[in-house]
Simulated assay, not measured.
Amino acid sequence: MTEIIEGQEVIKTALNDATDYNVTHGLNSQWTLWFDNPSRRTSTSNWTANLKEIVTVQTVEEFWGVHNNVAVPFDIPNGSNFHLFRKGITPMWEDTANANGGKWGYQFQRSIGEKVNEHWLNTLLACIGETFDSSPDVCGAVFSNRKNCFRIAIWTRNAADKVACENIGRHLKSVLGVNQPLEYLPHSESTKVAMYTV
């Protein structure tokens, strides 16, 4: 949508009018932010009730509006998680989009401090910007604040697709700027043995 001023069409974006823009930049997919604090749960049913859907974004402007107005990951309580998943996918292993998939993850020592916020933001931007070679296979991202570490993970749809999984893992390594190996764990594997390593 554009605005007509003195007979001329004027396009106002957030870049040239941060408060009264009339053009937005759509994302390829809609993404939903979720939050949970599992340290308070006592059973699976309570965990499901504790998982809260916060907001769905469909434009770049909405993403930044949300990002700038929610707690930074470093500040969420120990035991809590942020989840950013494609709209329609619940951040649970049982969701049909996740059931045959798995996750790439990396643990940061707590000594990294608030720099972890930057790593999480870079992960979010890679997701909403669809920068993974196999982006359609990315279901979402999870940030976990734990007593001894911070964890960032990317969840994928299909653990059997080695090429897609490894592409996603290599890109996550680049996004996080880490040199250590990342391991891919399928959701269905009860022994939690890494299926792939990049």
Rank of each mutant, 00 (worst) to 15 (best):
R40Q: 15
S29D: 12
T32K: 00
E53A: 12
T42H: 04
D36R: 01
R41N: 06
F63G: 00
Q58W: 07
S39Q: 00
E62C: 07
V55M: 14
T48R: 13
N37W: 02
H67K: 08
V55C: 15
N46C: 12
H67C: 14
P38I: 03
F63Q: 02
F63W: 00
H67L: 13
T56N: 06
H67M: 13
R41D: 07
W64N: 07
L51H: 02
L33F: 03
L51W: 00
Q58Y: 04
E62G: 14
S43N: 04
W31G: 02
T44Y: 14
T32G: 10
E61A: 04
Q30V: 10
T48Y: 03
S29F: 11
Q58R: 14
P38N: 06
E61R: 00
T56D: 05
H67E: 13
W47D: 10
F35D: 10
E53T: 06
N37R: 00
T56I: 05
G65I: 09
G65D: 09
K52N: 10
S29Y: 12
V66S: 08
S29K: 15
Q30K: 15
V60G: 04
V60R: 03
N46F: 06
W64D: 04
R40F: 07
T44H: 13
P38Q: 08
E53P: 01
L51V: 10
A49D: 09
K52W: 02
R41L: 05
E61H: 03
T42F: 02
R41K: 11
W31D: 05
W64G: 11
T56E: 09
V66I: 15
D36Y: 00
V60I: 10
V66F: 04
T44I: 15
P38W: 06
T32S: 07
K52P: 02
S43L: 03
P38V: 05
I54F: 03
D36F: 00
T42Q: 07
R41T: 08
Q30N: 08
F63E: 06
V66T: 03
S29L: 13
R40H: 13
S29N: 15
H67I: 13
V55R: 15
T42W: 00
D36A: 09
W47E: 11
I54V: 14
N37E: 11
N28H: 05
T32E: 11
E53D: 02
N37A: 09
D36I: 02
W47N: 13
F35C: 06
P38L: 07
E62I: 09
N50T: 11
V66G: 06
R40L: 15
W64H: 05
S39P: 01
W31L: 03
V55Q: 09
V57W: 04
E62R: 14
L33H: 00
V57C: 09
T48M: 13
I54D: 10
T56H: 02
V55G: 13
F63L: 10
E61C: 03
T59C: 07
S45E: 04
W47A: 14
V57F: 06
D36S: 02
E62S: 11
W31H: 05
N28G: 14
E61D: 07
V60D: 12
T32A: 12
S45P: 04
E61I: 03
N46G: 10
L33M: 04
T42N: 06
T59I: 04
T59A: 01
F35V: 15
T56A: 08
V60K: 07
V66K: 05
N37C: 07
T32L: 05
S43R: 05
